[in-house]
């Protein structure tokens, strides 16, 4: 933008290839799709676990949630889902919050929120899994 085309020897195609003006290329799109794909089987199992746990006592819930397979699937689902959430909400914020200050605050808040929710969930799963 600051240098008019013509002063650089590089072609527009060359400047864009790989990265583009945002310096992140298609990584954002790609991660949204990768986490979306991971979410489908993980959430199917997650739903089954939730239904199995619903209405059970504390001891029964811990016995089920503490199984390695259950704990691993739940932890994976939490990691994939919170990353998918972060990427998706970032787009929503960029679309609707135009003022620079509030936008930056919202974008950072989004990262903090998703990291906190993801870590809290994984910690809870691990604590139950390790018998805490």
């Amino acid at each position: 933008m600051s240098t008019p085309s013509g002063t650089s020897m590089r072609t527009a195609r060359r400047r864009v290839s790989g990265l583009g003006s945002a310096r992140s290329g298609t990584e954002h799109f790609w991660m949204q799709r990768v986490t979306a794909l991971a979410n489908i089987p993980l959430l199917l199992v997650f739903l089954g676990i939730l239904i199995a746990v619903a209405g059970s006592t504390y001891e029964e819930a811990h016995a089920l949630l503490g199984r390695p397979f259950v704990a691993i699937v739940m932890a994976l689902a939490l990691i994939s889902v919170t990353n998918h959430m972060r990427i998706g909400m970032q787009v929503v914020i960029e679309d609707y919050v135009h003022a620079e200050g509030p936008k930056v605050v919202a974008l950072i808040g989004n990262i903090f929120f998703c990291a906190a929710v993801g870590l809290a969930g994984v910690f809870a799963v691990l604590k139950i899994g390790f018998g805490g």
């Binding site: 504390y58 819930a61 809290a120 969930g121 910690f123 809870a124 799963v125 805490g132």
Partner: peptide, 12 residues
């Protein structure tokens, strides 16, 4: 997801 995690944290 926040509600779901709150439930998990409560269970832990």
């Amino acid at each position: 997801t926040l509600l779901l995690v709150l439930w998990l944290v409560a269970a832990a």
